[in-house]
Design a protein around this nucleic acid. Structure first.
Lengths: 254, 254
DNA sequence: AAGTGGTCTAGACCACTAT
DNA sequence: TAGTGGTCTAGACCACTTA
């Protein structure tokens, strides 16, 4: 009973800190069930909403998760998949059918992808990233990647339509080597890709399609592919569950 | 009044969705104040805890923030600083005193840094990343970087002590070019750096030192510096507020 | 059927900010 | 002083899981 109601620190935060410490100390092991809310109200001698505030804090931190009707559990460490961005090399593209399918082979899961293709005028941001006029028609490939049926990655790829017209890039199946393979066939030569990495909390839609637990942010990766003349060919926005992925980059020092 | 109490969707989620939509539609502009909780209880005809649940959801998403005694406000878009990792090049190192000071010049803020140096036996993870035996003595440089007095970045750098003994790396001030400069002076030649990027919710300590708002994750970047023989010289764990930083990488396609 | 967490009510008192 | 959000209580009823 480490709760001091006169300390000025809110009781629910003191309780959260106490439980958090019991977790890090190993008293509550990974995957273990916490005492029920009723038990906790008794041990800390507070009302249930106060206990729920405390547990809610830990959930927002991703330290615990709760299952309706079952209980509250210590979040076990996730096994994380490393996405080594060097796999975007030309050689890797030629071997695999696309980046995601290559990961599947490495990760040992069954991949599946849903693709929706549409054409739309470039919005402000897309236009700036691609270096084109807003309103220029772009081909949009909107993909949901699944591993063993579970959605794990969202990707929206936009290319000026002038580069995709008459190619399989406007089809569901782009063929071996993916869209990049088709662009190379059309004579394009790639400059180094640029990737911009951000993190934020998911929108409700993202949280539900990726089935994210509370307290799990998403990684938002924007890739810009340019040819050797500096002309942008594609901008690809990828959303990844941060508890399932980490990104590996190599930085040349020369 | 878009609330349907018999729809099965929790009322507080419906209210949150309604407010969220009013924000994205522009009815509540960035920085604008939301109606008070009392007003919201009246307009949605629910009790205050229900309103608080709804607003709490939006806070956890980082969509709004609240100030005690003032009100709840729409989170305005942050101006984000791009950290282009190519600045780790040898040339950049020679010009600037260190990566962070280089950023300061670009960002136009006054930088300050607090460094704490200690020596400790390598733990499991450090040993594995550095390719050394657990327990081997490592030099730890624990830094808090501030911009205009506000902590914006935490960095913990660990190097096998054999590479730092007798060098300014064991001092607060490492001199021009930072620790990497000293390692090069000692004859080390760097292989490409490896960086691993993760995102997660902050610990309470991180949240308070970085003064993070609710619903703001952190970027956790682990950099491993090796010499051309593949020997790891340093592992550097950096924690960045995700609403203030984005990371830029370049990926060679050859 | 029993136990769990999820939702919601109707209050109370407090701390902070503004005027 | 008035208005705001922050904390906390003591219940109620529901939905879900497990046995």
């Amino acid at each position: 009973m480490v709760i001091d109601k006169r300390s000025g620190v809110p009781v629910y935060r003191q309780i959260a800190a106490d439980i958090r410490e019991r977790i890090t100390s190993g008293e509550y092991a990974p995957g273990a069930q916490l005492p029920s809310e009723q038990d906790l109200t008794a041990t800390y001698d507070v009302s249930r909403p106060t206990i729920r505030d405390a547990v809610g804090l830990l959930r927002a931190e991703g330290v615990v998760y709760s299952q309706h009707g079952r209980g509250v559990f210590v979040t076990p460490p996730r096994k994380v998949q490393r996405l080594s961005r060097s796999r975007l090399s030309k050689a890797a593209r030629q071997e695999n059918k696309g980046a995601f399918l290559g990961d599947a082979a490495a990760g040992g899961f069954t991949p599946s992808t849903t693709v929706k293709i549409r054409f739309e005028p470039a919005d402000e941001r897309t236009a700036e990233l691609l270096g084109i006029q807003p309103g220029t028609e772009v081909t949009v490939r909107d993909r949901v990647m699944r591993a063993d049926g579970l959605a794990v990655q969202l990707a929206v790829s936009r290319l000026p339509r002038e580069f995709t017209r008459g190619t399989p890039i406007e089809e569901t199946n782009t063929g071996p080597g993916g869209a990049y393979g088709r662009l190379e066939e059309a004579g394009q030569e790639f400059a180094p890709f640029e990737e911009i990495v951000r993190a934020r909390m998911p929108s409700p839609e993202e949280a539900s399609t990726l089935q994210l637990a509370e307290g799990v942010p998403v990684l938002h990766v924007t890739r810009i592919a340019r040819n050797t003349n500096g002309v942008a060919l594609e901008v690809n926005d990828m959303i990844l569950a941060a508890d399932r992925y980490e990104l590996g980059y190599e930085i040349r020092t020369d």
